[in-house]
Design a protein around this nucleic acid. Sequence first.
DNA 1: TATTGTTATACTCTATAACTATA
DNA 2: TATAGTTATAGAGTATAACAATA
Lengths: 152, 152
Amino acid sequence: MEPLFVDRLLQITDLLQRDMAHAFDGTGLTTARVHLLWVLQHAGPSTQQSLAQLCEVSPRNITGLVDALERSGHVRRSPHPTDRRAVLVELTSTAVETMTRMQEEHDHLDATLLNAIDPADRPAVERGLSAVVAHLQSLVAAAATTAPEEAR
Amino acid sequence: MEPLFVDRLLQITDLLQRDMAHAFDGTGLTTARVHLLWVLQHAGPSTQQSLAQLCEVSPRNITGLVDALERSGHVRRSPHPTDRRAVLVELTSTAVETMTRMQEEHDHLDATLLNAIDPADRPAVERGLSAVVAHLQSLVAAAATTAPEEAR
DNA sequence: TATTGTTATACTCTATAACTATA
DNA sequence: TATAGTTATAGAGTATAACAATA
């Protein structure tokens, strides 16, 4: 009996998260902290405000994550050159190495997953998943505009 | 520029979770609690031990979730008929209604997602995602057997 | 007056360990 | 002796609100 299509997607969600969790098993890092490192790696040195926006999380939350990453030596706070209210958060060299390794694992996972699919099916899968993403984006966008009204 | 395949999957992961989170917006429920209700709906009245196994979570965690769901009127604890150590957790009629509605929304989401995919591509997408699931399962299984040794 | 980050407070999910009541 | 559930304790992620320093 075929599972529902959406259940297949949820199963992939679950498995991907488990697999990625194994990747930081020995590092003492967590999903939220790795996400912040990932954002930092791509954005470069950033203020906590901009990190909050990029991570879609409260500024207070960033304070906590940066505190933890500073303690574990993955991140450094330095004064902002022109705005004395702000700090710049940047990766340490240790973290740069860690993120480089994670990026490689990420690319490797991408290759092996694609490789698991019959080459003849790949274009159709690409098209299908793009369509699914587009549809989900429109659903989420629609919910985002109606939900705030309910909340009042 | 095409995103990596695995990034497309992660994007779907993120969007699915957001969309489903909207579904319990007004109910005061959370992901973990809805998951427990979902399990209960499919398993029927259960002891907390078996719920812990089905949810892959500690028994202590179930205590907290059941406490919260009992307070919000979604769940009832009743004495186990033959084992006086155990309790049976079951859905209240309110929760049965909620879960029925959620099941309908789930089926509806399944239909609309599938509908977003070109009919000609559907079989290939099915095959492709099955292969991805199988591959991820083997990765997770492999990590599960090696990780415990590192932990010692 | 507006913005940056922090302190204060609180809730949720999660875990392990010790304990109670029963098997 | 082993099992079911709870109390005790703890850590992580998350949020809002009040406040300090600076713009």
